[in-house]
Design a binder for these strands. Sequence first.
DNA 1: CATGAATGAGCTTTCATTCAT
DNA 2: CATGAATGAAAGCTCATTCAT
Lengths: 199, 199, 199, 199
Amino acid sequence: MSYREERAAERRLNILKTAARLFSEKGYHDATLDEIARELKYTKGSIYYYISSKQDLLFQCHDMAMNLLLENIEKVRDSELPPDAMLKEVIKEHIETLMSEFNLVTVTLGSDYELEDKYSDIIIKKRDLYENFIAGIIRDGISRRIFREVPVKVVINLIMGAANWIGRWYSEEGPMSLQEIGQFYADYLVTPLMSRNSA
Amino acid sequence: MSYREERAAERRLNILKTAARLFSEKGYHDATLDEIARELKYTKGSIYYYISSKQDLLFQCHDMAMNLLLENIEKVRDSELPPDAMLKEVIKEHIETLMSEFNLVTVTLGSDYELEDKYSDIIIKKRDLYENFIAGIIRDGISRRIFREVPVKVVINLIMGAANWIGRWYSEEGPMSLQEIGQFYADYLVTPLMSRNSA
Amino acid sequence: MSYREERAAERRLNILKTAARLFSEKGYHDATLDEIARELKYTKGSIYYYISSKQDLLFQCHDMAMNLLLENIEKVRDSELPPDAMLKEVIKEHIETLMSEFNLVTVTLGSDYELEDKYSDIIIKKRDLYENFIAGIIRDGISRRIFREVPVKVVINLIMGAANWIGRWYSEEGPMSLQEIGQFYADYLVTPLMSRNSA
Amino acid sequence: MSYREERAAERRLNILKTAARLFSEKGYHDATLDEIARELKYTKGSIYYYISSKQDLLFQCHDMAMNLLLENIEKVRDSELPPDAMLKEVIKEHIETLMSEFNLVTVTLGSDYELEDKYSDIIIKKRDLYENFIAGIIRDGISRRIFREVPVKVVINLIMGAANWIGRWYSEEGPMSLQEIGQFYADYLVTPLMSRNSA
DNA sequence: CATGAATGAGCTTTCATTCAT
DNA sequence: CATGAATGAAAGCTCATTCAT
C-alpha cells in the first residue's frame, strides 16, 4: 500500500471510530455530521469524500462490529474445547471485542432499526451466521449431555441481551476490569446450562 | 374528577400509548408528531394542548415505565418470600410489565440517552430506587448464605440487560408465551446466584 | 369553498405562478426555493406546506400548461371549422395560452427533461393527446385535399418548435401585440400545408 | 504548433465535445464535472488544466456553435443565389450544422440563460451578426418583390424556433434522414415568404 | 378546544473549485 | 502535467413548535 493509500485508509478508520463513538454516545440521529466533522477537525465536505452517506457510515459501524465478531468465532471454532468452555470463550471475546477500541456495542445495541433495508439485510445475514454458530455449540452441548435441554434461541437472546447491555453502564473507573467482567458474565451465563449430572 | 377532566386524562393516556408504540417501532426521532397525530386522528396542533413537547412525551413514557416497575416491587416487598423466590418474582413481573399493554421496553431500552438532563434526572432517580430494591434482595440472600458472594451491581446490570432485550426479539407468534419466557428467564438468571450448599 | 380553502387555493396558485416565472427566467436549477420564497414573501418552510418537493412544483407547472392546452382543443373540437381554419385557431390559442398570465412556455420548452420519470410519464401522455388531436386535423385536411401530403409528425414538431420559442424573445414592448403575433404565426405556419388547387 | 500544443488542443476539443454531449443529454446543471471527467477518463482535477470553469465550458460550446453557423453564412454569402434559394440554403446548413458531430442544438436551445453576462454578451453579438445576415437576405427578397412584406425579426425568430427544436425530437431511427428534414424545413419555412406573383 | 397555517433552525448532501504533492 | 484530497457555499427538505382564528 502506498503512503497515500495508507493515509486514506487511516482517515477512513478515523472517521469510522469517531462516528461509532458519537453514535454510541448520542444515538444515530443526534450525532450530526457537523459534529463528527468537528471532532475530527475535518470539514463536513471532506467526510463525504470518504463516505457516501450517513447511513453508509452507520452501516459500516455495524458491519465492522459483525466482522470482528465473526473473526472471533473463527479463532474458537477449531479449538476442540468442550461446549461449555467454548461458549464461555465466545462470550468473553464478544464482550471484549465490542467494548475495546471501538464503541461498537451501543451501535449494535441501539440502532439497527435505523438501518435501511438494503443495509440491514447484510447485517442480519452476518448476525444469523454468528448466532447459528453459537446455537451449534449449545446444541452440541445438549446432545453430549453436558448442557440440559433448553430453548436454544431464547438462551442466545438472553445471553446477547446481557452482554450487549454492558456498553450502557461499564466505566473504566469501576472496580472490575473488562476482562473480569467478561469472565464473570461467561461463568454466570453458562452455569444455568449445565446439566445436573455434570455439576 | 369532572367529566371534562376525565376526557382530557383519557386523551392524554391515548397519546401516550400511541407515542410509546411508535417510539418503540421506529425510534424516538423517526416517530414524528405528524405521525402520532395521524394515528390518533388528531391534528398536530391539538396534541400540543395535552403535551408540552415531544421530549415531555418521551419522558412520560419512561416515567410511566418506571412507575409501573416501582408498583411491582411494592407488591413483592412484603411477601415474605425467600430471596431467590422474591428475585424470580421481580424478574417475571419486570418482563411482563414492560412487554404488556404499553410498548415500553424498547423505550426503556433504546432511548434514555435521548432524554434531556432535567428529565433524565428524574428517571435515573427512580431507576436507582428500583435497582436498590433489587440490590437489597440480593444482599439479603448473600448474608443469609442462600446466594453466593457476587458483585451485586454487575449482576443487576446483567439481569436488566437480558430482560430489557426481550422487546427486541419477542414475537407473539413464537413457541413460548410471555409467561413462559418470564419464568424461564427468572430461573435462568437466578440459578447462578445460588450458593453450592443450597443446590 | 370556505374562506380558508379559498385563501389556500390562492396561495397555491401564487406559488405556482411565481415558480413558473422564475423557472422561465433562470431555469429550473437556478431558481432556488429560497428565491421563490423571497419573492412571495413566504418562508421556505411555508412553501413546503403547499408543495411536496421542487420537482412537484415543476411538474405542476407542466401539468397546468398541458391542461390549459387540452382545454383549448375542447373549445375548437366541435367548431365545424374546415381543417385550415381549425389548425390556425389551435395555433393562435396555443400561443396566447402559454404566453398569457403564466410564464409556461419556457417551462414547457426548456425543462421537460428535468422531470423525473414518474412525473414526465403523465406529462408525455397529455402531450401525446394534444399532438394527436392536431395530427387528426392535419390528416383530415389531407384526406379532404385541402392540405397537401406531408409527414404529419414532422409538421407538428415544426409548428411546436416555432410556437414554443416565442417565450424566448417576445417582449411586450415590441411593435406587435401577442394577438398579432399569434395570427401571423398561424397564417405563416398553415400556408405551406395548403394544396396548390386550394390556393 | 508544437507537438505539445497540438496534444493540448486535441484534449481541449475532446473535453468540449464530451461536455457538449452531456449538457445536451442532461442539461447544464445535471451534467457534473465528475461525470465529464469520468467519461473522458480524466480526473476532475486534470480538466481544470484545460478549462477555467464550468461556465467557460458552456460558453465555449455556445461559441463553437455560433462560429460554425457564421462559417456557414460565409459559404453562402457570395453564392449569387436568389434570396429564396439562399435562405433555404442557410436553413439547411443551420440544421445540419447543429445536429451533426457536436450536440450543439440543445445547448443552443436550452441553456443560453445559464450563461453569465460576460459570456452571453459575446454570444449575443455573434447571434446578432448571424440573424442580421439572414435579415439581409429577407429584406433583399422583399425589395426585389420575391418575398412579400413581412415583419422580418418575427420571421427570423419563427424560423429559428422551428429549426432549433429539431434536436428535441429527431432520432436517427426515424423515417426521414437529417438531410431530408433539412430540405423539408427549408421549403416549408420559405414558402410563406413568397409573394403571390412569384408563386 | 381544535385546527390549518406558518415558521425557522437544523439537517444531509452535492459540487465547482483549489492546491499540495 | 496529473491527481487525490479537501473545501465551503449553497441547496432541498424536515419537523417540533407556535399561534390566530
